[in-house]
């Protein structure tokens, strides 16, 4: 027996590890808290992610500067230097102006709403191609916890999926797992906004409901994650076959997720850390 165990040592260790990992996977499913592993890894990776974010920003800035300078090569050296200097200044002012306008709008929006908001910068994306998440540079130390809504003035971005001390992972509304209770703003028809990875679909709409292209879809406030009345998107197509019980509307999301750089995490005064939005348990 001992001889057998000794010979099959590696196979046994592998088998035990595989079983252990399966246990971890399904234990995690039963108690969806922020796992210590997840927190530890995210905390360890945070400096690297922040560094990469900085490098990308700097490289992009450098490339922009280079492109802007290419056109001035035909000029003489003195003018070239002068123009380059002015161009650089102009770019800087332009960038600051754009940033100022963007932040001014967002701050005005922040003042309108009584909920406390944590301003966060996006520093990373999902590590896989299946999920749609963004990493932001605010975490437990800033009062962020799971299931808080993440929005912008333009509309809903998503909700906080996991938190570590310095950063959080935001699940976008376009993620396949995302379900947001929603309303059509014009006629208050209810539906459920599903993430499709590439966009949003409002499903489970009453088949008799009148929907048309251009209708604005907002959050209904049910589910206790998203505040009521925040824009999710606009209807671009309505799908319904005669035998189907519900209508489906394809939405153009209010946010261009490739272009967002900052977000607000909404810390509602009465919000406590909650379980998932929908649960199989009664």
């Amino acid at each position: 027996m001992l001889e057998f165990l000794r010979k099959q040592r590696l196979s046994l260790v592998v088998l035990i590890t595989l079983l252990g990992l399966l246990l971890v996977v399904f234990r995690d499913q039963k108690s969806p808290k922020d796992s210590i592993l997840q927190q530890t890894v995210q905390t360890l990776v945070y400096p690297a992610q922040a560094l990469a974010h900085w490098i990308v920003t700097e490289v992009e800035g450098g490339i922009d500067d280079y492109i802007n300078l290419v056109d001035t090569k035909a000029e003489n050296r003195r003018l070239q230097q002068r123009i380059a200097s002015l161009q650089e200044q102009l770019n800087q002012f332009r960038e600051e102006s754009i940033q100022y306008r963007r932040l001014k709008h967002q701050l005005a929006f922040a003042k309108q709403n009584p909920d406390r908001k944590v301003f966060a910068e996006i520093i990373g994306e999902s590590a896989d191609s299946i999920h749609q998440t963004r990493t932001v540079n605010r975490g437990q130390n800033d009062g962020v916890h799971r299931n808080l809504a993440v929005i912008l003035q333009e509309g809903v971005v998503g909700h906080v999926q996991a938190v570590s001390p310095f950063q959080s992972v935001v699940q976008l509304v376009t993620d396949r797992r995302s379900r947001v209770p929603a309303l059509i703003q014009r006629n208050r028809v209810r539906g459920l906004a599903f993430g499709t990875h590439y966009g949003l679909e409002l499903r489970q709409i009453n088949r008799r409901a009148k929907i048309k292209e251009g209708d604005r879809v907002i959050t209904s406030g049910l589910g206790r994650i998203y505040p009521k009345g925040v824009l999710l998107g606009t209807v671009v197509e309505v799908k319904h076959k005669s035998y189907e019980l519900f209508k489906t509307a394809v939405l153009e999301p209010a946010i261009n997720f490739d272009q967002i750089e900052e977000v607000f995490v909404i810390i509602r005064s009465h919000t406590q850390p909650q379980g998932p939005l929908f649960s199989d348990k009664p």
């Binding site: 592998v14 590890t17 595989l18 990992l21 399966l22 971890v24 996977v25 995690d28 499913q29 969806p32 796992s35 592993l37 997840q38 927190q39 530890t40 890894v41 995210q42 990776v45 999902s126 590590a127 896989d128 299946i130 999920h131 998440t133 999926q161 996991a162």
Partner: peptide, 18 residues
């Protein structure tokens, strides 16, 4: 480590890689 950086389910990548 990748599980910690991607989605909510710890162990999925670890199990599939192993």
């Amino acid at each position: 480590a990748l599980d910690g950086l991607s989605h909510l389910h710890t162990g999925v990548y670890a199990f599939s890689f192993l």
